[in-house]
Design a protein around this nucleic acid. Structure first.
Lengths: 359, 359
DNA sequence: CCAAGGCATGGGAGCGCTCCCACACTAGTC
DNA sequence: GACTAGTGTGGGAGCGCTCCCATGCCTTGG
């Protein structure tokens, strides 16, 4: 609850004309509120910031003056004097935004936004689309415009997380670059996702389960593949490298991988695609090859995106708690901002299999 | 091109240790740059801001000092002294974000972000999900945190655009609330979209073309419906209100509308759905009713979203230049910030029909 | 009854910039 | 040889806050 939520009616009372006149005379300042309430500047500041060292009488008087004047503290002045901006940057690499498309980033933003709004912090969105823009963004951070940084979809060789840390800014990533990630992160259980998918397919009696992986330079792709292998082992199915083919999270990549898999193992009876979009590509190839889904080949994807629901047949998919990841990231970052973290922090959220007609 | 792009190497040269030491001694200030360059504060400020009133010699000296110290101006101080924040708010109503889902808002953000980055402005994203948050956002604006506001997906009765104007802030909307919208906006040619879709269907020999509209309290829905009617007239087809049914831009709404249409006019041979998602719902109902797409009933949507590509059969759809709308909005807003606009401004971008197998 | 401590309070001193006025200094003009 | 009209430059005066120290008052205890 922001301290000024309680006075939010002031502007409304005044209506547009009041605001306009307020504009020409300049917005009210702390000083004016102090004068009106008959107290000093410091006292108003204390009330504004919820300090306990204020008497009840005084607090009431100040609150009334604030409401009467429609006072809202000037953010720039606060930032300058207090050296905190109450703003958080969320960085999304352009390339990924295009790829994952789907509501992934929107859901993430929704979670981050909700959590930040509660803490009365502002969300600053940055789409980074080139090396040049990455450098520009670093300048941004140096200009002390944000209190902390959230990074989405970081690649294995991305230097940005470390650069941000070097600047002394708290940072939390979505996903990790390697198994042993030194930077705080929030991830979903990608290994569990692969295991759940394979367990499901094996449970349906499938024994020749192929997989279309993501690009293997991304941890998320390796983790899902690892889960796939663990799932096979747990189901007592023999591993077979001919049943593994790398995609790149695009529909076309899914098509390509599916063609190779069919060539090598025409007898495969199930496919675990590491994303819904690749599953869509795979389905196209399967259909062209005359295989029925799910009768001949069962299909499972990951993301549980709208695409999965609308596919024909509707796609069984592993859902990630995307919005919750966003919330978790924001919470973690806010804690790190409040006080430097004692230890590297991480949070891995569970995934959930959503069964539909494709398997 | 930001004025400090040319000195962006400074931080890099120093490496992490340099930055860290810079942190404990505090970041360099204008004053320190001035001292180092042997000039006054005002002069450095002039160089920084690209004023022409500086000799070449002085400019060079200052530039070098800036580079040597790795100076980056403090944003809060600039905002306080200069009363401009170099930040723009993009407001997205939560309900719509969920609905349109798809990459609509992501594309819009991409366009806005690209244009703002060029102007060295920062993008502030706000998802507004309740009346309470809307009020909070108004407080935000009052705190003078942004120089202008972009509003996406505004409803017919939304008071926010006028409230923002009352606060004296420049604002540009995406879409409009009515035909005669007083607030500056950027929209796509929704009437043209409807006409193009119907013209296409008529050209394919269809004569009983139905439409599933959006919610008719939204201008965008009325405009597409208007285009549909104009298209019928232009093709010499008789209007028939029994062929018109309102949806709500959701898949379920599309299903419901399609069922009603089939009940009323079992002989319809084409459907223009005002969104891809509704088209997906309609396709489901058509299939359940034993109608083949496109043989029995041709189907056209709007948005050209990934869903359209992945549908079965792939959906013919009218594409909007979403990213370009975002760019246009940003440009318009930046102009209005630079100098108050002489006249209400608007910009309507053309749409384009993408023909696929469903029609 | 007075000292010591605690609490609420006022206000000075910045935070790092932009704005703008004043001051050279140069160059042109009658 | 003044007198204007520029040009480049320095630096004072804020912008509206937060931080913190000093002040005065009210308690409490010896």
């Amino acid at each position: 609850m922001p301290w000024w939520a309680s006075v939010s009616s002031a502007l409304s009372y005044e209506g547009s004309s009041g605001v306009v006149s307020g504009r020409q005379s300049g917005r009210p300042t702390l000083e004016q509120v102090a004068a009106r309430a008959g107290v000093g500047r410091g006292t108003v500041s204390r009330v504004i910031n919820g300090s306990p060292r204020v008497s009840e009488r005084t607090r009431t008087a100040v609150d009334r003056a604030v409401a009467e004047l429609g006072y809202v503290p000037n953010q720039a002045a606060r930032a300058l004097a207090g050296s905190r901006t109450d703003a958080i940057a969320l960085v999304i690499p352009e390339a990924e935004a295009r790829l994952f498309a789907e509501p992934y980033f929107l859901d993430l933003m929704r979670g981050v936004g909700a959590e930040l709004a509660e803490a009365d912090k502002q969300l600053l969105l940055t789409l980074v689309r080139s090396e040049r823009e990455r450098r520009r963004f670093e300048q941004y951070l140096a200009a002390q415009r944000v209190d902390g940084v959230l990074l989405a979809s970081v690649h294995g060789d991305d230097p940005l997380p470390d650069r941000v840390r070097d600047l002394g800014l708290p940072v939390v990533m979505n996903g990790r670059r390697t198994e042993a990630e030194p930077v705080p992160y929030v991830d979903s259980d990608n290994i569990g996702a692969g295991r759940a998918a394979v367990a499901h397919l094996a449970g349906r009696g499938r024994s020749r389960v192929a997989t279309v992986t993501g690009p293997l330079d991304m941890y998320v792709a390796r983790a899902r593949l690892g889960g796939y292998r663990a799932g096979l082992a747990e189901a007592g199915l023999p591993p077979d490298e001919a049943l593994v083919e790398a995609g790149d999270f695009t529909e076309e990549g899914g098509r390509r991988a599916m063609r190779l898999l069919l060539d090598r193992r025409p007898d495969l009876d199930a496919v675990f695609a590491a994303s819904d979009v690749m599953a869509a590509g795979a389905r196209g190839v399967l259909r062209e090859a005359g295989r029925r889904v799910p009768e001949d080949v069962a299909l499972v994807g990951v993301d549980d995106s709208p695409v999965a629901r609308l596919m024909d047949p509707p796609l069984t998919s592993v859902r990630q708690p995307i919005e919750e990841m966003g919330r978790s990231m924001a919470r973690m970052l806010l804690q790190d901002i409040a006080r430097a973290p004692e230890e590297p922090r991480r949070h891995v959220l569970p995934t959930e299999l959503v069964v539909r007609a494709s398997s």
